[in-house]
Design a protein around this nucleic acid. Structure first.
Lengths: 203, 203
DNA sequence: GTCTATAAGGAGATAGAC
DNA sequence: GTCTATCTCCTTATAGAC
């Protein structure tokens, strides 16, 4: 194997850290566990990162980007806005069920940041990114189904994230996919109720 | 100070642990930090509890009880169901704002349990307790305002917990109380939409 | 540049003195 | 019964050999 550049080493460590966190949780992501996962000697860690928290910061930036890509993929236009929203929620939920520990890891990273002085700026940025991403999806979804949001789209986006977080937590606790489905039905209705037909569509 | 019985010692340690967790997070709640908070020698810890996780189990049982009491207190009947629900959400949210790190601690304990084999049974019990408590409040709230739930009350209760969890997480991230208020407005509407006038009230 | 070896400190749990 | 002193293991970080 060729020697890695410093930048490549950082990327490899971030990916290894994410694998460890997904598998065993944030508290298990020690420098030793991470370098073992990346198959590197321990000293390489502090050659690439100043501290463990500097790596965690990169990990969070990386996963937030990943969520953004996943959200955009979730837009599968349906017959009307309600079925589009319901399908989007289901697409997200399917990801959660496929890798529950990844979603757990997202929450753990969030709470770890809240408690860590050096990372205290991350939670706000994380949720701003979520809200901005969902807002874009909402705008496209409404346009594709001839609707517009009667409530400020910022507030609708926040509501959607509230739903996805809450639905995820409840399912992580009881693994009741049927109940989660019923909550998503209610959520899709509540979200769709905030839109009205777009008059500009048929002038 | 008189010597404490074994049972009293357990209670004192659980309360001390909760104070440490609220203040500094679950990861900071080491046996040493807990006995220091309780002003006891280190060895007392393993005299009262077999392991740290056995204490954490007690802490979770204790805080879940606390949430139950708080939820019942949140029932302040208003003019109609919607304002009653809105006031209940606000009462909960006021508690979050008053002690954010306590609500953070609840989430941390939840995620810690999910990752810890010995405690893996707790998250489900924790959410069952939440759902049961909210269900009772919902039933009383509907009755007091002459309404009944047209959707199974179990599903409504789950939706309410989804809202409170999601609203709390978003506020912990951006501390935007105005945005949280607008989400609570939307939530109160969505919840109230699931109830209908109770025909039996005026036979 | 890279890695072995080690420093320095914190963790849970317990042996054994009183 | 109670607590001091300690055991053993694991952590982040770095010094210094190659």
């Amino acid at each position: 194997m060729a020697r890695l550049s410093s930048a490549d080493r950082r990327v490899a460590l971030v990916q290894a850290a994410l694998r460890v966190i997904d598998r065993d949780g944030v508290h298990a992501a020690t420098t030793r566990a991470i370098v073992a996962e990346a198959d590197m000697p321990l000293a390489s860690f502090h050659y690439a990162f100043r501290s463990r928290d500097e790596l965690i910061r990169q990990v969070i930036a990386s996963v937030v980007e990943g969520e953004k890509a996943a959200a955009v993929d979730s837009l599968v236009p349906g017959a009307d806005l309600q079925s589009t929203v319901r399908a989007g929620l289901q697409a997200y939920f399917d990801l959660v069920v496929a890798s529950p520990s990844h979603e757990q890891a997202m929450f753990e990273l969030f709470h770890y940041s809240l408690r860590t002085g050096d990372l205290a700026d991350l939670p706000q940025a994380q949720y701003e990114s979520y809200h901005a991403t969902v807002r874009e999806v909402l705008e496209v979804g409404a346009r594709l189904t001839g609707m517009r949001w009667a409530t400020p789209v910022d507030d609708v986006a926040r509501l959607v994230v509230v739903f996805t977080d809450g639905i995820t937590l409840a399912w992580l606790a009881d693994r009741d996919a049927d109940a989660a489905g019923r909550t998503m039905d209610l959520a899709a209705s509540a979200i769709t109720a905030l839109a009205v037909p777009d008059r500009k569509e048929n002038p």
